[in-house]
Design a binder for these strands. Structure first.
Lengths: 229, 229
DNA sequence: GGATGTGAACGACTTCACAGCG
DNA sequence: CGCTGTGAAGTCGTTCACATCC
């Protein structure tokens, strides 16, 4: 999913260890565990503890963390606080990100009320919906605007991120409007592949596919257990 | 995410092409596009059409589809209807799947009302929540039960799949109860790694991580454009 | 000609294994 | 000793390239 850009071979200086797409996927997870452990008073963690928590190999953890610099203490582990700070810095969550949410259905409501976001430094500053019935309403203190106001709000509030939760048929056109308004990243929940310029980052989450996926895995497992006899 | 089992090396007969985890990820997407095209009257599709639609290489598409048998017609392409049927069969969505939903918050509501599921052959037959305030209420005609009834409902309604949308702290315990009740697959939205036996399939979707991910990509892109000068 | 199916090359990610340091 | 950092090996997934067939 999400065929990105990531600068084809614009690695000017060449060399730099390289940061794999897969590692990026794990940084947020490391951070979450570390923050919990820190709260529980753990001052030092080892790569194998982190590995266990994520269900991966300890060498993998060390490779990932090496990207942050040489923070590990041989014979000891990593200092929790130091790791957290380094991760926050690298992840870019050491400051607040403003985001807009386009398409105010149940999913949008769920996302808004899902505490996790605010806690991790994300702030929704604008809601948008094309349905005239919804425009003007308020949810959790946030007013729903007409999509025409997208550009204005994005500029005024210095918004970098957008969440797209509209029907598939409208998604591309919403994305185009967001891109035109200067958005830097889009989290897409619409079940369709969005085409965006390479300078805009894209993450796609397709809920229907996930459940189908699960059904498939179960189906496979059943077939296998049938085959096996 | 989602470290699975998938039978370590139980490939008894050995040989079979092998079905990569990654291919599985794409089958649902193929099916979605095919169904749309079929509705639009398209009788034949080529691997490159499908590849464009998903943003991947055409050889990849052929490799994936080869798993369904030799359906392709050299010089022609694939017959839409035939592909759809084969995919439905292999995906296991040629029949309805019963599912339960544990944890009735906004996300659960969003999922319930998200038409995509019903349309693709998934039927929610039970809702569960530990909050006594919620037990007894109805949503979209479905009654919310106390978690104690899990086992009974799962058995009575022949439920194979469960969606877990409870807070992280309760998720493992819910999963354990589901497993004990004989569930075959779990779709987990709680931001934590669930441990389940190998005979239970697991798919995890972590929304907070996705947004953090996006922030990270944008952050990286900004750094790069800064470095570049 | 036009599209499939597939071995072989390639590239990305993971694991191993071990030197090195506190 | 224990745990990190990392080259080397291994595994998995993707792309290439081309023989093959309608």
């Amino acid at each position: 999913m999400s065929k990105h850009d990531a600068t084809p071979e614009a690695n000017g200086a060449a060399g730099e260890p390289r940061l794999s797409r897969a590692s990026v996927q794990r940084f947020s997870l490391y951070l979450r565990h570390l923050e919990r452990w820190k709260k529980e008073g753990l001052e030092v963690v080892s790569s194998s503890q982190l590995g266990d928590a994520l269900g991966i190999n300890d060498a993998q953890v060390r490779k990932d963390l090496a990207y942050l610099g040489n923070l590990g203490q041989p014979g000891i582990g990593y200092y929790t606080q130091e790791l957290i700070s380094a991760l926050r810095y690298r992840l870019g969550v050491d400051h607040t990100w403003n985001a807009v949410l386009v398409g105010v259905g149940n999913l949008a409501r769920a996302l808004l009320r899902y505490g996790g976001f605010a806690q991790q430094g994300f702030r929704f500053v604008g809601l948008f919906d094309a349905d005239p019935q919804k425009v003007g309403q308020k949810i959790d203190g946030l007013q729903i605007h007409s999509p025409e106001k997208l550009a204005a709000v994005i500029a005024a509030e210095r918004v970098d991120l957008a969440v797209v939760a509209v029907p598939a048929a409208e998604a591309q056109q919403v994305a185009d409007a967001l891109v035109a308004a200067g958005i830097k990243g889009i989290l897409n929940f619409a079940p369709t592949l969005l085409r965006v310029p390479t300078h805009v980052s894209l993450i796609a989450v397709d809920l229907a596919v996930q459940l189908e996926q699960l059904a498939f895995l179960v189906h496979l497992a059943q077939q296998e257990s049938t085959d096996a006899r």
